[in-house]
Computed example of a mutant assay.
Amino acid sequence: MFQPGGGAVYPQPNPTAPPVYGNVPGYEGFMAGGAGGFVPPPAPLHPLPTPDTQPSQVDWNIPSISEDAAQTAFLEYASENCCYSKAPAKDGVITNMESFNTYRYRLETFTEARITEWKTEPFTDQAVDFGLQTAPTPWAIQVQTPALFKDHEENIKVPNTSSVKDCHICKETGQTRCDVCTGSGKKNCSACDGSGKRFQDTCDSCGGSGKENCTECNGDGLQQCETCEGRKQLLMFINLKITWKNNLEDYVAQQSSGIQIENLSSVTGNRLFHDAQYMVYPVYGFPDPNVSQASDRLVKEHQSKFSQSGRIHQQQHTIELIPITKVSYKWKGDSHLYYVFGNESKVSTDYPATCCCVVM
């Protein structure tokens, strides 16, 4: 349909009054005051965990790496930094090597949380379905669960909650005051920066006024309404935001190697134990009682906390033995040390030969 002059005329249905917040059946408790918010999950369908899976009795020790492997790791470490001389790694003489057993217990709880909120978008002839049928409640809406233990988010327009309303920002005009010129249609002259002069002479661009037409609104003082994108009407609906989150927590057993615990977060270890199910049972009877105590504490905390804030889909916990080798060496008559740790043979040290690098 076109109007005289060639401009398109968009169909303008009679706006349906937006639903009163408390009048959407099934959402009375979730949209109190119109704000929306967290939707408590239904009761879990799975039974509580039982102590079916516990670590098997295996060799809990990992032998120290060889001197050649330690020196190779040290040389690679020095080579990766342009400001490090390779001399300590090449010429240093290893005097002692000590291995340490460090256990890392990791618990992961994969959860789903649902939040409802009112949303609007420009009305462009989308389906208007409020009142056609009863809207499904938040947890009744079926979605495909994403890959386990990976964060993911989805937004779903709740069926049978969409209605049309006039845009409250532009008052149905499709336009708002220009942000650049604040509605005046003028802005500071770009040639003289609003002074009206250039090199002590009157500015030719603005005739000395210091102002020019606003290029953002072509001097009209108005711009297209960003909320309705000039359509004058909005589609209003309840949005269901679904967030899947992997809640991960580590416990690293204290050890006497001297390496900073933070360094271990970037490496992997030798997996000694792994169990995954709806809800895991704490690990008891581990050779290091601190690991068992940490497992008991973290499992109880996760199951209590996350069963209240969302739906638990799956838990898994692992125990790794992270290899750490403390290497003492001499270079130029002085004693130094470095650590080689993790399956990746990463190195941590206070390197004794550095220089100032300038990258051009």
Rank of each mutant, 00 (worst) to 15 (best):
Q308A: 14
S307H: 12
V58P: 00
R231S: 11
I324L: 09
P51C: 06
V327A: 01
I65H: 05
T111K: 05
E301P: 04
T176F: 08
M1N: 15
C181I: 02
I319S: 01
G26E: 07
L272Y: 03
T202A: 14
V327C: 03
L222K: 13
G310N: 07
K300I: 08
L75F: 03
N290F: 11
D129T: 11
N23Q: 15
E108S: 09
E320L: 08
P15T: 14
V347W: 01
T325A: 06
V283Q: 02
E320P: 01
A353K: 13
A78G: 04
E80K: 12
E121M: 11
A69S: 10
L248G: 03
Y103V: 03
P323V: 03
T134S: 15
I259P: 02
G208V: 02
T16V: 14
G196T: 07
Y351G: 00
V9G: 08
C170I: 04
S328E: 14
Q233D: 03
P15I: 14
P289H: 12
G37K: 07
A113G: 09
D296I: 06
G310E: 04
E154S: 13
E117Q: 15
D201F: 09
K330L: 07
E212T: 08
A32E: 14
K197E: 12
R106G: 00
M1T: 14
N239A: 12
S184L: 05
I115G: 02
G269S: 05
V24C: 08
I261T: 07
Y84M: 05
M279W: 13
G310P: 00
P55D: 01
K90P: 00
E112R: 15
D193A: 11
K332W: 12
H336S: 02
V299P: 01
L298R: 08
L132D: 05
P42V: 03
E344P: 02
E172C: 06
L264G: 01
R297A: 11
I94G: 00
E154T: 13
N101C: 14
N290G: 11
F123W: 11
S266H: 09
V128F: 03
C189P: 02
D350Y: 11
P44S: 02
P19M: 13
L45N: 11
C357T: 10
C228S: 01
P15W: 15
W331M: 10
S163E: 10
S345Q: 15
G333S: 07
L264V: 07
G174I: 09
M279C: 10
R177D: 14
T268S: 15
N218A: 12
P63N: 03
L321H: 09
N23V: 11
L222E: 11
Y339K: 06
K165N: 06
W118P: 04
R114S: 03
N239L: 12
Y284P: 01
G26F: 08
I312G: 02
G285H: 04
V158S: 08
S256L: 14
P138N: 05
I65K: 01
P47I: 05
T50G: 09
N96I: 01
A276N: 04
P49W: 01
Y105A: 00
Q175C: 09
D201M: 12
T111S: 03
Q293L: 12
P282F: 07
S266R: 12
Q133G: 06
K232R: 12
M31H: 07
